[in-house]
Design a protein around this nucleic acid. Structure first.
Lengths: 244, 244
DNA sequence: ACAAAAGTGTTGAGAGTACACCCATGC
DNA sequence: GCATGGGTGTACTCTCAACACTTTTGT
């Protein structure tokens, strides 16, 4: 893993002129972490303690170190901020404009992640001093171009929820159909029809009826379902198009 | 545009410890350039002249300079290779694994682009010495992880063609419905039904009949259409879902 | 008994798919 | 007149959207 200080000539397309060293850039990994809490979709923001933007809110993230991949950096930053180790994490977009960071050219590789609020609570004893959840509908002023990043993440999440299984990552392992529906409603920001939703979910064949019931409430107990990942994989192998 | 040599402390989430300088990384922009030629989908590859991978084919691209954004770097590299200035260019994914480049940690921000072969021919008098088009179905051995990048680009293109207007970027301004259909077939790698294709395209309302005819061939002349971008925008404003 | 959420089917509209023949031109 | 690609319509299937009442439990 040498740093290869020697440049590469024009035909090699690495560096513009012979023997010119490669320019190096500060690269940050920033993460938009979503969760559902109190029937609303939230993102985690941290308060900046250093200028510029002292006291402003921004996305959890930080510089990529020399000895780690960009993905690893994103995961590490998330762990440092939240103490969480298992999340659904997916790369979003790379922001490489010159003027996006007033301190100089910082290239930001952005990610989005989703966690079940229940699990998060258990592990988030860590450094949460300056971290807070904000409803995506009521964001504070964000530093850098982080508002744009959140918008993009939300757009991506709203798209993906329709043809992938991200929504399940926001729920505990066992959940009721109403909870699943509420997750969809909160992500999409709109109501969905109960009967159509249940019909579609059940006929997709990606839910396993656990035969258990949720008795917590003071109403009729609801059936608990689990996400049947194995069935999804089997369907995919057969070439049938199914949300994943 | 100062380089900001001072680090940022833990709460600031920029660097792990107080006063630690930010690590810097070599960042490359690599482009998968598609075109349609001889009824087949092709990508542009360049032959590497420097070790490692001397003589191997790879994607056009190069290191991002200090004074340019990542997008600008992608466009510049493409111009240097092909002489082309107007392309549809879209960011694809950022590859940040430690071991993807044997020379050290090089973060690659990948893009895909599409051009009309007709226009390309006109301008591509430039440095094409070591550049060649390859059918996506018959790629040579590629250096680095460039084969993975091409696969991802192809997947993205095949998806996008169904709900955006990328396909039009592969054609001249005026085209026949048969040419448009062939573009779709070549991208998707499968035949589509002529009547259904025409019905759908016409009812989308994004084509403008130029009233001109293509007389070139030795058969019945075909009507020439143009992409009606303005109509797409109007439809979008109304909230109607339409390919863009 | 009543409040509160769980659970359940049918119908109509529109989109997608399958499918085969005539038309206009150059040679 | 024939070869070549251009151009056209219908019927079936399936998915999506709209829509209201009964059931089960706790209090």
């Amino acid at each position: 893993m040498t740093e290869s200080p020697n440049g590469f000539n024009r035909l090699g397309r690495r560096g513009a002129s012979t023997q010119a060293p490669q320019p190096h850039h500060a690269v940050a990994a920033d993460v938009v972490l979503f969760t559902i809490q109190d029937e609303s979709l939230k993102v985690l923001l941290v308060k900046r303690a250093t200028p510029p933007f002292r006291g402003w809110w921004s996305l959890p993230g930080g510089f990529v170190r020399k000895d780690e991949s960009v993905d690893e950096a994103a995961l590490r930053e998330l762990q440092e901020e939240t103490g969480i180790t298992t999340v659904y994490l997916e790369q979003l977009y790379t922001f490489g404009d010159l003027d996006r960071d007033p301190r100089g050219h910082v290239i930001s590789v952005s990610y989005y992640a989703v966690v079940d609020w229940g699990q998060f609570q258990l592990r988030a004893r860590a450094a949460r001093l300056s971290a807070r959840w904000f409803a995506v509908t009521h964001l504070p002023n964000l530093s850098f171009d982080h508002r744009k990043i959140v918008s993009l993440a939300l757009e991506r999440l709203r798209n993906k929820v329709n043809y992938t299984s991200v929504a399940f990552q926001l729920l505990p392992k066992k959940f009721t159909l109403s909870e699943l529906q509420r997750a969809y409603e909160v992500i999409l920001g709109q109501r969905v029809d109960k009967r159509n939703f249940r019909k579609k979910m059940l006929q997709l064949g990606i839910l396993r009826n656990t035969k258990e019931q949720k008795v917590e409430g003071r109403q009729r107990p609801a059936r608990l379902y689990a996400f049947a990942e194995t069935r999804v994989i089997k369907l995919q192998e057969k070439g049938i198009i199914v949300p994943f």
